[in-house]
Design a protein around this nucleic acid. Structure first.
Length: 634
DNA sequence: CGGATTTGACCCGCGC
DNA sequence: GCGCGGGTCAAATCCG
């Protein structure tokens, strides 16, 4: 079973801040009753963050055990009024008066005593005394009728003139009954919380549908006009982004796929099993664009396993490319999360089952395919593969790229909600059409500021890839000015990353650059990286590596040795060549100033690779350059 | 023994 | 039309 064992690091501040921009109500995060029992400490803060909402929810929930003692006090007051037969001219009904005659409340008398209002069981004088202070609570209505049974029995007690021993026994039995009742109410409370959570989830899902469908309608007119522009200037990527709006109407898998494939039959010659997984067996509503309405999932079986990965299925459709059909060609957004993890899977709170593994070209690290198994028919899938360069350059600092697609059709545990909210919101941002770009890679200020306000470099959008993809880079340290370090929330398995400025910057920059390159291989034309790229970032990392890392000197020596090793050269070149597919023009220029802070880049490389690369050093020795040589000539 | 994983084969789109 | 690559399936295998 594929269980997330990796250490995923997400800053909960980031999430909490981000959640303010989520379309669906983040309170879902807090609606699970088991927050106290969260095992993983990494998520505890999330649970704690949500506790306010939980408390509020509890306060609004049906009567709890807290309230009914108040009701008892109220009864005592009434009893007091009645017991004072001589002085009292109470207008209470006769039954209430009879009820108050009961002097059964041994344990309540004790409680009152504790509260400072002493009551003696059989003393009517005491009953008189006890009446006045409790009168403040007369108006408290607990909504519980727990006293009904008690009072009736008490009434008979009084009439029968039972002794104090019997009263003690009765009191004990009533305590037991009340305790059982308390337990029952606790269980009921938990059940109600579950129901509330379910309602919240349903509400959020419906809200998302409504928003996206409304947006779809509004954008439909725009798309018409936009298509004309596209015809004229062939701005396919632009068109693509706009089509994303339609996909956004699904926001979730179901809708987009239905819209894109509605009315067409799949020609895939697979076994019927292909259709099993995405048919919404749970009866989820699916929007059928052809039918202009929602249909039950059971009737919506044209889809294939790829409800999740819709893109290639969309491409399988009728190749005739009219504008309308192009509109129907909806590619689903993907959200790629880049996190530091040494395990093949990050722990995102969901249960995944691995259904395939593929050795993608250019990456010796196989890509694993997972599907969500938390609910039958859940269309969510994810891919996971290690960032190759992270293995090359930071051997001990692997970066795992996890790509999600689709939305879950089932309630999620809090831990999963964090990731799901992040990814779904990112996908919505991508598909919202508010940040369309004429060309592939862009850094969206909009997305950055809204989805990930803590950092300006955490989110990247790629529309040129086969799928619109939002990449959330969780490998970087957020801007320390905006987000103080909180290493306790999520633990990256790389302690040095925050300690060593050089490491921090390098680990942040390289994966960002190379990782994006991997996702845009078709557009890859060269990369440059310099220490000057982010002076602020480096400036905020105060101490030089040599001061903080006692191994700096030895590392520098090792670096020099490794860099001089022809095996290293060959290995690194081979790796890069492999990644970029041996394209002739693909020279990767990595400017490396001879700075001791860089020494970690070269560690442990040549044990990993075997193909050639050339390292060129400038005359002055200020700069080293890695040149990828063609596979045949290297 | 049931469920999860592995892995070779297959399907399909796309580029040449 | 053919080959390549991504994605998926499903039988075989593993494992608790």
């Amino acid at each position: 079973m594929a269980k997330g064992r990796g250490v995923l690091s997400i800053d909960s501040d980031l999430i909490s801040t981000t959640s303010a921009f989520f379309l669906h109500n983040p309170t879902v995060l807090n609606s699970f009753p088991d927050q106290e029992n969260i095992v993983n400490p990494k998520w505890k803060q999330l649970a704690t963050t949500g506790r306010q909402t939980m408390d509020a929810t509890s306060a609004r929930s049906p009567p709890t055990t807290i309230q009914f003692p108040v009701k008892l006090i109220n009864t005592n007051d009434a009893r007091d009024d009645d017991d004072d037969e001589d002085d009292d001219d109470s207008s209470l009904p006769s039954d209430n008066r009879r009820r108050t005659v009961i002097d059964e409340m041994d344990f309540f008398a004790r409680k009152k005593h504790d509260d400072g209002y002493p009551i003696t069981n059989n003393s009517t004088d005491d009953l008189k005394d006890s009446g006045s202070p409790a009168g403040l609570e007369l108006n408290v209505n607990t909504g519980l009728n727990l006293l009904t049974t008690n009072t009736s029995s008490d009434q008979s007690m009084v009439d029968d003139g039972i002794s104090s021993n019997m009263e003690d026994k009765r009191a004990k039995s009533e305590v037991a009954v009340l305790q059982a009742e308390v337990e029952r109410m606790k269980v009921e409370n938990l059940r109600l919380k579950d129901m509330l959570n379910q309602v919240n989830s349903n509400y959020n899902a419906l809200q998302m549908h409504l928003v996206t469908l409304t947006r779809d309608q509004k954008s439909h007119h725009k798309n018409k006009q936009h298509d004309d522009k596209i015809k004229n200037n062939g701005m396919v990527p632009r068109q693509f982004m706009d089509l994303g709006l339609v996909a956004a109407a699904g926001d979730t898998d179901d809708l987009s796929l239905s819209a894109s494939e509605g009315g067409r039959s799949r020609d895939r010659s697979r076994s019927p099993g292909n259709n099993v997984e995405n048919t919404n067996e749970d009866g989820a509503l699916v929007f059928d664009q052809d039918k202009k309405g929602f249909a039950r999932g059971a009737d919506h079986r044209e889809d294939s396993p790829g409800q999740g990965w819709a893109s290639n299925k969309v491409a399988r459709l009728n190749p005739a490319k009219t504008i309308d059909q192009t509109e129907a060609t909806i590619r689903k957004a993907r959200v790629s999360v880049r996190a530091r993890s040494e395990d093949a899977m990050i722990s995102d709170g969901c249960q995944w089952r691995k259904y395939g593994q593929k050795l993608a070209k250019g990456n010796p690290c196989p890509r694993a395919y997972y599907r969500c198994t938390m609910a039958a028919g859940c269309p969510v899938r994810k891919q996971a593969c290690f960032l190759f360069f992270s293995l090359i350059i930071f051997e001990d600092r692997t970066i795992l790229i996890t790509t999600y697609e689709g939305n879950h059709n089932h309630p999620l545990p809090p831990a999963a909600m964090a990731m799901a909210s992040t990814t779904s919101s990112a996908a919505r941002m991508l598909l919202s059409g508010s940040m369309s770009s004429a060309d592939g890679l862009l850094n969206s200020n909009f997305l950055t500021r809204t989805l990930l306000p803590c950092s300006s470099n955490l989110a990247t959008i790629s529309a040129s890839a086969p799928f619109p993809t939002v990449t959330l880079d969780l490998t970087q340290n957020p801007n320390p000015l905006q987000l103080p370090k909180q290493p306790t929330q999520f633990q990256f398995p790389f302690p040095n990353a925050t300690q060593d400025p050089a490491n921090a910057s390098a680990t942040a920059l390289l994966p960002q650059i190379f990782g994006q390159a991997l996702y845009n291989q078709s557009k890859f034309s060269g990369l440059q990286m310099s220490q000057d790229m982010e002076p602020n970032r480096l400036g905020q990392q105060s101490q030089p590596a040599s001061q903080q890392n006692p191994l700096a000197d030895s590392l520098a020596a090792a670096t020099a040795a490794i860099a001089a090793d022809p095996n290293f050269t060959a290995a690194l070149a081979a790796a890069i060549t492999s990644i970029i597919g041996g394209a002739h023009q693909n020279n990767i220029n990595i400017k490396v100033k001879p700075n001791p802070e860089r020494e970690e880049i070269k560690l442990g490389v040549h044990s990993f690779l075997k193909l050639p690369v050339q390292i060129w050093q400038s005359r002055k020795g200020e700069e080293k350059r890695l040149v990828v040589v063609d596979k045949g000539t290297a």
